[in-house]
Design a protein around this nucleic acid. Structure first.
Lengths: 194, 194
DNA sequence: TCTAACTTGTGAAGAAATTCACAAGCTCCG
DNA sequence: CGGAGCTTGTGAATTTCTTCACAAGTTAGA
């Protein structure tokens, strides 16, 4: 299967949010032109993006809104419930644990870890903060599919190494530093500075 | 002047954050190769990115860390203090008003507006929430250079229109909808869904 | 001064993403 | 059934972005 450009995936997620909007308004079909107008792109772009994954429309008619949004959710991995842990119970970590948008999108935060003894055992957004020493054991046990890193830049690489070793395949990092990981582990860094 | 790609600007901001790191460690010079390694790109890319704005390095030597970071800050508009207002005192608006990272980067939040009478006059992160009815008057008076929109999607376009009419030139929106504005007004939409 | 070792800045080549343009499929209506 | 009016899906053309490759500038050391 061919590699899909990141920009394509980003746009698909935008299309999905418009589809949800359109669906809520009760429309049953839509066209690449509609989606393009809403998303600030061109209809050819929309069709090209979708064509990477198959053909979901009917010529002359457009796309079925419920069908296309369900296909997009599938493509984007949002039809699955992902088990997520947050590493780092500082300000960013706590804000993420509280963020409701995660759960809405199928990302279920079921664990928060920290190394600070004064934080371990305390409550953070309804979850008990666990000792980071148990993290790799829990990961190895298959407790999580995704880890979100909200730790200082200087500790991030070491945690990535441990997670990769324990068998985790997906990491989202908020640490402002370049992270290295084996090729079969996907690491994505979010730049808070914008 | 030639148009600069958004991807270039995004990388410049990454380089700057590494430079700040390097500066804090006390190093005086760095090379395109260093920056590339840290940023997960190539040295040719780094040099190409910088070359759009001039030549800041010395052949054989590399770049002066303080000079390059100050030039980047200038290019990215971070050497200026921007006066920012937040429109919408809901959850996102309040979180943004509280967010310290803004001030660090030269974005000074000096006003928060909302249309809800139960919120007007209340305190939000040290600022009194003002009546949105006064927003265009304040904008026209030159009180703000940038507006951050944290309002429901259905109200966003109307506010953009009012701000544009009042003479504002830069808007950052968190509303999940495509916004239209005159060509001389820059609107940037942040996709919370990731 | 001369050579070795670096590193920048930049045309040119190569790769990737976007846009164009059109054949082909679908629906409606007379 | 046939034509008009839409809209998709997709090769080909075009534009944009990235990487290559190397001349030229700089420093250090002999």
């Amino acid at each position: 299967m061919k590699r899909i450009a990141e920009s394509t995936v980003r746009r698909l997620s935008i299309y999905l949010s418009f589809l949800e909007d359109i669906e809520a308004r009760g429309a049953l079909t839509t066209s690449s032109d509609d989606l393009a107008r809403l998303g600030g792109t061109t209809s050819a772009q929309v069709r090209k993006d979708l064509s990477f994954f198959g053909s979901f429309g009917k010529r002359g008619l457009g796309y079925s809104v419920p069908e296309l949004s369900s296909r997009l959710r599938e493509i984007l991995g949002l039809s699955h419930q992902w088990r997520v842990c947050i590493v780092g119970a500082g300000k960013i970590g706590a804000a993420l644990a509280r963020y409701a948008g995660f759960a809405e999108r199928g990302f279920l935060v079921t664990g928060v870890y920290d190394s600070d003894p004064t934080k371990i055992g305390k409550n953070s957004a309804g979850l008990t903060v666990k000792n980071i020493a148990h993290l790799d054991r829990d990961v190895a046990a298959g407790k999580y599919e995704i880890a979100v890193l909200a730790v200082p830049a200087e500790n991030a690489q070491q945690i990535v190494d441990a997670l990769a070793k324990a068998g985790l395949k997906a990491i989202l990092s908020f640490a402002p530093t370049q992270l290295n990981a084996p090729a079969d582990v996907t690491v994505r860094t979010v730049n808070m500075a914008m």
